[in-house]
């Protein structure tokens, strides 16, 4: 991956920056320039809580190129408490004990690296939220 393509997503990947529609309050992640709910095009940047519940997941056992060193790994959809749903890996847990409904919290993690001279990509992954 070319550096700019990763770099320009950093506000989302590192800080979970989302767009809140000033007209209808809908929150969009990733941010959009046109609100699919009301059609408005003015937004405020907000940061997502990163806390929510697992709605569904799978365990990837046949990975795409770039992820072969990580398999098997869990990927799921988490619905955050503010209603936004996002997909990410679920880590720091025994994937065989995961269940839908489990509380999750987003953490800053390494996503993958592209060999010895490529980009090391960081971003959010979910881990079970046992502290609630």
């Amino acid at each position: 991956m070319q550096v700019p393509r990763f770099w320009r997503e950093i506000p989302r990947y590192y800080r979970l920056e989302a767009a809140a529609c000033v007209q209808c309050d809908a929150i969009h992640f990733p941010p959009r320039k046109i609100c699919p709910s009301c059609g408005a095009n003015a937004f405020e940047t907000v940061r997502l809580s990163g806390r929510g519940a697992l709605t569904t997941f799978t365990i990837i056992r046949t990975p795409p190129s770039g992820f072969t060193d990580q398999a098997p790994y869990a990927v799921g959809i988490v619905e955050l408490d503010e209603g936004v749903r996002l997909m990410a890996q679920i880590t720091d847990c025994d994937v065989d004990t995961l269940k839908t409904g489990d509380r999750m919290i987003a953490k800053f993690r390494r996503i993958r690296e592209e060999g010895r001279t490529g980009v090391i990509m960081y971003g959010y992954k979910f881990v079970p939220d046992v502290g609630v």
Binding site: P30, T58, I60, T62, P63, P64, G66, F67, Q70, Y73, V75, L86, M87, A88, Q89, I111, R112, M121, G123, K125
Partner: peptide
Amino acid sequence: YEAFHGVTFPG
């Protein structure tokens, strides 16, 4: 926002 996380079509 999907493939970035290593998800596949079967996934």
